[in-house]
Design a protein around this nucleic acid. Sequence first.
DNA 1: TCACTACATCATTATATGATGATATGTTAA
DNA 2: TTAACATATCATCATATAATGATGTAGTGA
Lengths: 115, 115
Amino acid sequence: MLPPEKSKLALKAKLFRGFSDPSRLSILEALREHQRTVSDIVKATGLSQSNVSNHLSCLRDCGLVMAEQNGRYTVYRLSDDRVGDLLTIADLLLSDVARGIYECTRYEIEQPSNS
Amino acid sequence: MLPPEKSKLALKAKLFRGFSDPSRLSILEALREHQRTVSDIVKATGLSQSNVSNHLSCLRDCGLVMAEQNGRYTVYRLSDDRVGDLLTIADLLLSDVARGIYECTRYEIEQPSNS
DNA sequence: TCACTACATCATTATATGATGATATGTTAA
DNA sequence: TTAACATATCATCATATAATGATGTAGTGA
């Protein structure tokens, strides 16, 4: 009965979704140091070029990063300082609640190794 | 070549994953007002009991919420103020980059309505 | 033009995961 | 004990999505 709220939640969920993948996080962390070209990001993260490009598209669509064409290079950078702020707060939060998170595996089956 | 970093990224990704779903966000927003029982959350969010319980398990495992048994009720609350902080920053960020996010649909096919 | 580089965009596949409905567990009251 | 309530768990399904490999596109220099 509150559709405006719903769409807002959907937007926020998508925003966080940008942060909810290790590969994307590694890209964001790399961009946190300084702006980088795609091949630079590939080197920094060890991910494949295709994979990086896909994630960058997502991050760009989500507004977390910005791209600037520069000759045959595309230079990416974080679009806002608050992107880094979120990462920092997450780090702080993690250091306190990590014990609970390290096995946040609702949908992963862990086979009991102590049979 | 940097396994400790990798695991840290995985943890952080899981943390953000707790925020990356509209249903979970609605639960977190509800808990932001005050602590609630499960049935209270069900009413506040309009989600099914089963669904809420599943998401609460995930949020609990992720350390974002805490549960306290109280008779036959289970009372949930946010485990840390920074959980709310992250939501606030996300709101602020959203108000600026919403234009880019509203169509962060890398994997959704949008059929061109203007054929 | 041709070759090379830098990057983006498919198509495909395997897996993750959100939702649902049914069932199980546990608590309280009669 | 029985019934009712509150919550958790399970099986199932449909969808989302991360990764890969191949291909397409564009810029640059020879």
